[in-house]
């Protein structure tokens, strides 16, 4: 009962935020378009060549990098970003390394496939919500083949033998597909970069993911932790590389997330 109320409250708060944020982003977007015009008018050969080369993306006159997402909660986000960073280096990484050491790669890979297979409802429903019938069908086929023929999804004969593609769609992308913009940038504890839209999307996907319907709370936590640790164990070093390459890691991760999501929505 308490959890139900909690979810309702979260949804309500996020909805209000969403409306408020959308308007501010529009204001910001307007400004950036104006300033871009001024910048384009300047006759600088070098810069014109630059705009020439990087300018005309699929996003129209302004480049994909130049349409920023507002960050009104910068200080809050920055604090969570630092917290997540410490969490990764002090807890998640050592645990994942230990786990990697004692768990054979075949098992870790199998678990990754299993979790991917279990999240089939999220992908299936969101493909349908975006009118991607063929993709939804592929997902359904994959799910049946991998569940039956791949030992509840540990192996992926649908991909290896039948060459069926998978289509990662989530509710955040569905909202993006309905032309709802990101709102503003948000860094979530434990989860990392997100936006208001994608956070709302996460609430939607929450109801479609099987872990939500496990009766025992302890088991839910255990399964979710295993999922996270397993996933991290397969990608140790990626976070460090991105962070080391950046001059301003906070901005680099923010921009990276926004670019990645825009590409996913555009697909």
């Amino acid at each position: 009962m308490i959890t139900k109320n909690y979810i309702r409250l979260t949804v309500a708060i996020l909805t209000v935020w969403f409306v408020v944020a959308s308007t501010t982003t529009w204001l910001f977007a307007d400004e950036s378009i104006k300033s871009d015009k001024v910048y384009n008018q300047e006759k600088d050969n070098d810069l014109n060549a630059l705009d020439d080369l990087y300018g005309d993306d699929e996003y129209g006159s302004t480049t994909s990098y130049d349409a920023p997402v507002a960050d009104p909660l910068y200080w809050f986000n920055y604090a969570i970003f630092s917290f997540n960073d410490k969490l990764y280096f002090w807890l998640l990484k050592p645990v994942a390394q230990g786990y990697k050491f004692i768990t054979p790669p075949q098992l870790r890979n199998g678990l990754k496939n299993f979790f991917h297979n279990a999240l089939f409802p999220v992908r299936f429903v969101n493909n349908i919500l975006q009118g991607k019938g063929e993709a939804a069908l592929c997902e359904a086929k994959s799910f049946v083949i991998n569940t039956v023929g791949g030992g509840v999804g540990f192996a992926t004969p649908a991909q290896y033998i039948f060459k069926i593609k998978t289509y990662n769609e989530d509710f955040g992308q569905t909202l993006g597909n309905y032309s709802i913009n990101e709102g503003f940038y948000l860094v979530l504890p434990l989860i990392g970069p997100s936006t208001l839209r994608d956070s709302v999307g996460r609430v939607g996907d929450f109801f479609l993911s099987p872990t939500t319907y496990i009766e025992s709370t302890e088991l839910t936590y255990a399964v979710s932790s295993l999922e996270v640790v397993n996933a991290v164990s397969l990608r140790i070093g990626d976070y460090e590389t991105l962070k080391d390459a950046a001059l301003d890691p906070y901005v680099a991760f923010k921009n990276g997330y926004i670019q990645m999501r825009r590409e996913q929505v555009a697909k």
Partner: peptide, 18 residues
Amino acid sequence: YDVKIEGVSLVGNYREQY
């Protein structure tokens, strides 16, 4: 002149930082 990994443009990412 640019590499995009998982949809993230390397040049664009630095550009935003600068």
